[in-house]
Design a protein around this nucleic acid. Structure first.
Length: 288
DNA sequence: GCGCAGGGGGTCG
DNA sequence: CGACCCCCTGCG
């Protein structure tokens, strides 16, 4: 396949570090020239910035412009969203100033499900390593600039792995969860195509929760970071609990803060922008 | 350098 | 509510 290129001149709300290191994705790696290279679908893309211009180049199954517009959520007006959120209070304003270049990616639903099952009680370097090994063994090779990259396996490809195979790749106790979920999806006990079409937020969430290894937090990550793109989703992990307690609840014992209490405040304050608000707060608190 | 303890984007039973 | 696998990191 031939290399393609797409350039956005004078881009707004697009910072590489903010996008790739805010915790939504696991397959983007920083190059020595500080650009990032990643694999999604059958594409290998390198993204760099020159001043305010964003440069995408790489190997693409289809047109690179269409592909990147979709994946990087380029048709959404983040400036407008940030304006709206900044007016809520000073905390939001500050967190947005910090992570002003965040965009929420439209990642493949299947890949996002498996990736976040793996993320449970795990740390980012290890999560990335596991996903890389899974891709290398069960995905397809793509060669770009004389280097090998590997696509994330399809459902059928990953279904070839036994529980023991997965254990050998370092998944630990998540092996059974990934195995079970893969086969639930393969056998269409959960139909991902149908799930993409379902409009009712709670129905989608309930369906995700039937998958092995998918609890409330993982479900909300899938809802927010995949092509499902449900901005109402508000994943609550230790960091979000911490920042929400610090800013809005101020309980002496952070571990005693009730989840429903956090959800209530999030809904009241951020409404249908809760998901993206969470992301600014999370990234801000975690990095700073 | 190297060995080792500690902990990590939760979920399940 | 405790157990869960194990790679990574950081410290001695």
């Amino acid at each position: 396949m031939k290399e393609q290129e797409y350039i956005i001149k004078n881009a707004q709300s697009f910072e590489l570090k903010d996008i790739f290191e805010c915790g939504q994705c696991f397959r983007w790696n920083k190059e020595t020239d500080s650009s990032y290279t990643g694999v999604f679908g059958g594409n290998v893309i390198n993204v760099s910035k020159q001043g305010k211009d964003v440069i995408f180049k790489g190997i693409c199954e289809e047109d690179i412009k269409t592909t990147c517009k979709k994946y990087f959520d380029l048709d959404r007006d983040y400036e407008k969203i940030k304006d709206k959120l900044s007016k809520i209070d000073n905390h939001m304003k500050k967190s947005i100033e910090y992570g002003q270049g965040i965009r929420l990616l439209n990642q493949d639903l299947w890949e996002t499900i498996i990736s976040f099952i793996i993320s449970a009680n795990n740390n980012i370097p290890r999560i990335k390593g596991i996903i890389e090994r899974i891709s290398k063994i069960y995905g397809d090779e793509i060669i770009y600039n004389e280097k090998s990259y590997y696509t994330f396996p399809t459902v059928e490809q990953l279904a070839k792995a036994t529980v023991e195979d997965l254990r050998k790749l370092g998944l630990g106790f998540r092996d059974v969860r990934v195995y079970k979920t893969t086969h639930m999806i393969l056998e269409k006990r959960v139909d991902l195509k149908a799930l993409e079409k379902e409009e009712d937020f709670n129905k989608v969430r309930e369906t995700l929760l039937t998958l092995s290894g998918v609890g409330p937090k993982v479900a909300d990550c899938i809802l927010l970071f995949s092509t499902l793109k449900r901005w109402e989703a508000f994943p609550i992990d230790v960091w979000v609990r911490r920042v929400m307690n610090d800013l809005y609840i101020q309980n002496e014992d952070e571990t005693k803060v009730n989840k429903t209490q956090i959800e209530k405040i999030a809904r009241e304050k951020f409404g249908n922008l809760a998901g993206i608000a969470q992301q600014y707060l999370f990234y801000w608190k975690r990095e700073a």
